[in-house]
Amino acid sequence: MKKLNRSRHLFSHYFALAAIFLLFACDDWNNVPDFDVEETTGYRPVYATEAEAEVKTLPAQEVENAGKIYVIGDYLLIVEQLRGVHIFDNSDPSNPDNIGFLQIAGNGDVAVRDNLLYADQGANLLAIDISDLNNIKVASTIKDVFPFGSKYPPSEGSYFECPDPSKGLVVGWELTTLQNPKCYR
């Protein structure tokens, strides 16, 4: 009987510890678990090259990682996380036709209204005129709509190198060995 009580007691300690850990883990990387780690596995941002940072249409590409989806008229848009948007002619849903790729480095979400595609690009919101896919234009840019930008690695509960906006747009994350990481999510 005594033993049982004791193990219960222990269990509640574990529970409290776990709760505290989770509290920390749930906040942004400002509140972090333990930053005394010198060397650990984590994510490093991959920045767009100058060519990759340009918003433009490219020939159809394979879907590598299917992100968010969006339907506009007969078209199906598939976000390729941090890289851009696959455009499918979906007028025959039994046979969706991959017609091109809209390169938007750092993108995660899109929405379309009246031939304008709204897309996040890092911290900015772009309105892209897609009325002519052979000649798309960035109609406007609103800066700093997304103060948090595309700053997280793909998995939660991991250390990562804090992105540096001066190095460009983040277009991916590589799993690597980090020294003294300053970010965690």
């Binding site: 249409t57 020939p59 968010k68 989806i69 969006y70 339907v71 506009i72 008229g73 007969d74 078209y75 848009l77 002619d89 017609i99 091109g100 995660g108 979400d109 899109v110 929405a111 379309v112 209204r113 009246d114 031939n115 595609l117 709204y118 996040d120 897609i130 009325s131 002519d132 896919l133 052979n134």
Partner: peptide, 23 residues
């Protein structure tokens, strides 16, 4: 590369439940 696809993105589209944008 994009045959006869002008003016087809009119109106309002629809996203999934994890969308962060909506009209």
């Amino acid at each position: 590369s994009f045959d006869d696809i002008s003016d087809d993105f009119g109106g309002e589209g629809k996203g999934g439940s994890t969308a962060r944008f909506t009209f």
